[in-house]
């Protein structure tokens, strides 16, 4: 009982007590500049590219903080209230925004839901864990077959797929919030941001829109690289040792993913059977890599790596970056480029 209370206290303290200030993209606070607050790193990255010298963009998440557990502090709310633009991913990523809106007094603040017009997928899970019971080995293979079928983007809503998604709908119901990890969505989000900038500062509208268009071209280039590379891979299944944020990307390129985790949070222990199955699966399929997520020590991935001799590769979800990454000037594009490199290595793509 005592420890449970302690846990609750700890969690609430950690969630509410963030010490300090959002990160400044530009230091010089000119009065003319648009004051922008963005919740996640990709939004921050895009806003600073579009706004450039005409804006001060702040990232709400302190560096390295896990995005899903984040809630704004009073100080954060004040910062949002003072801004001209507030950009967030969407309701399912930042459920706290809905409550926040009521407490904002700044009438001229423009609130940008970057997910507008984007179709959410149901929460991505490693299909096959838990509820399916005995047939789990089979289900892994099914998924591979299915993945092969779904490689053609037109097949995205194959019957089999729908069945699985429906199945999941019953169990989880939630939407997958990681929309930014698919380039089509990313382009839409970039456009939303550019449009918001233009509305706020019509004098420079052309500049914002052309920057967005230029950036979207880069996204298209990268998308093509993904398409070409991932078409010729030996493996179609990602073994992932964390909570899987790449549902949109996987669906787009016909990849399947399996993970030892049953529930959503990577804190909870995976079951030994699940780990054993993954080990067997990796040995059978000759998979030489296991992917892990950013920001968390990949303990379970390490176990799998030790048992199978597989290599551990980071697949960066770009929710947030660490201080070091910020100092290295990483960007959404650089993160996604590195992800492609590692996917190429891990899935043995030609």
């Amino acid at each position: 009982m005592k420890s449970r209370t302690c846990l609750a206290v700890m969690l609430s303290l950690l969630i509410t007590v963030h010490w300090g200030f959002p990160v400044h993209a530009t230091d010089d606070p000119g009065p003319e500049r648009l004051q922008v607050v963005a919740t996640l790193f990709p939004l921050f990255d895009w806003a600073r590219i579009i706004g450039g010298e005409k804006s001060d963009v702040n990232l709400l998440l302190p560096p390295g903080v896990e995005a899903h557990a984040f809630e704004p502090t009073p100080r954060d709310i004040v910062a949002i209230n003072k801004a001209d633009l507030f950009i967030y991913t969407g309701e399912s990523m930042e459920p706290w925004v809905r409550n926040l809106l009521g407490s904002l007094t700044n009438r001229s603040l423009m609130i940008v839901d970057s997910s507008e017009g984007i179709d959410y997928m149901e929460e991505a899970r490693h299909e096959g864990a838990g509820a399916e019971g005995q047939g789990r080995h089979d289900s892994i293979h099914d998924h591979e077959k299915e993945a092969a079928r779904r490689h053609d983007p037109d097949h995205q809503h194959s019957r089999h797929h729908d069945k699985i998604e429906g199945h999941h709908h019953d169990r989880h119901g939630g939407k997958d919030p990681h929309i930014w990890l698919e380039f089509g969505n990313a382009r839409k989000m970039v456009n939303h941001i550019a449009r918001a900038f233009s509305e706020k500062d019509p004098a420079s509208a052309d500049l914002y829109l052309s920057r967005a268009a230029e950036y979207n071209n880069q996204l298209i280039q990268l998308e093509k690289a993904y398409e070409q590379t991932l078409a010729g891979c030996r493996h179609k299944t990602l073994v992932y040792g964390g909570h899987f944020a790449f549902g949109y990307l996987a669906a787009r390129y016909g990849l399947k993913h399996i993970s030892p985790y049953q529930g959503f949070t990577p804190d909870a222990e995976p079951t030994p059977k699940r780990i054993a199955e993954l080990i067997d699966y990796m040995k059978q399929s000759g998979m030489k890599a296991i992917f892990f997520e950013e920001g968390i020590e990949p303990r379970v991935a390490k176990v799998l790596g030790r048992e199978t001799g597989a290599q551990l590769l980071l697949l960066h979800g770009a929710h947030n970056v660490t201080k070091e990454e910020m100092a290295r000037n990483v960007s959404y594009l650089s993160i996604m480029e590195e992800n492609l490199e590692r996917l190429t290595r891990g899935l043995e793509c030609s």
Binding site: P62, D267, E269, P272, R299, V300, R306, T322
Partner: peptide, 19 residues
């Protein structure tokens, strides 16, 4: 900053992930 999730992984530990 930035290791709170790692810290929380120690709340539950993992008997299966011992090196």
């Amino acid at each position: 900053r930035g290791f709170n999730v790692d810290l929380f992984s120690y709340l539950f530990g993992s008997i299966l992930a011992i090196s």
